[in-house]
Amino acid sequence: MRPRRRGADTVQFDWITITAQIANFLVLIWLLKRFLYAPITDAMARREERIATRLSQARLARAEAEHEAQVLSDSRKALKEAWEEELRKARQDAAALRKQLQDEARNEISQQREGWLAQAETERADTLHDIRLRLNKQVFTVVRRVLSDLADTKLTSQVANAFTRQLETLAPEQREKLADTIRKDDRAVVESGLDLPSATRSHITRAIHQNLADGAEVTYRLDRSLLLGIRLTIGQMTIEWSAGRHLEKLEKAASEAIEAEFAEARR
């Protein structure tokens, strides 16, 4: 069926249709705005917002993770540094300790050695001292024996001669003193290491009478300790010429010299 026609096939303005179309278009705008643009743009906006939120969350998480990683890395680095520092310190301490121990050991050894050396030196000095003393004594013992073995009448008279010469060469004040003593006591004792022959005795007695007091009584005694010698005792005073006495003096002097040297060495 053909639709009805209104008017000819000419271009014409149908104002009613135009108005209706304007209305239709406005309605369509409203409808599409209501059902198409608003929902679609809203949905896209929501999605974009959510994506942005997730992205920002991811960024945040990433930043946190990076921060954590940085913190971990820093702490690991710090640990390593501390460890290395400790190790270095421990090595230094160990080296210092080793040096200290070495020094101590060296000092100890050196002290011990010094002690040993000192001890050895002391022992050597003691031994030497002993040896010297013993040698000294031995020497004088031998000398005494030699003297006693060699002592005979002739030698004794030589000793008496020496004694009388001593009397003669006495200092005047000593001689005066002796003479005073013998005058008070009127007695003189002559001791000798060997038995004196009578000629020698009379020679001595004569010398006493001539030099000290004429007529004084002279008594003779034997004293082996004098060895080769003669001793005149008047009261508290004595005059003596004796090899034994000389030897004693010599021995004493030698001993003193040895002791002094020893003391010097000790110092």
Partner: peptide, 19 residues
């Protein structure tokens, strides 16, 4: 045409997803 546009839009936007 309006009906086609509106109905199609409504059908689609009724089940919109923002995920």
């Amino acid at each position: 045409v309006m009906a086609v546009l509106v109905v199609a839009s409504w059908l689609i936007t009724a089940r919109l997803s923002d995920g």
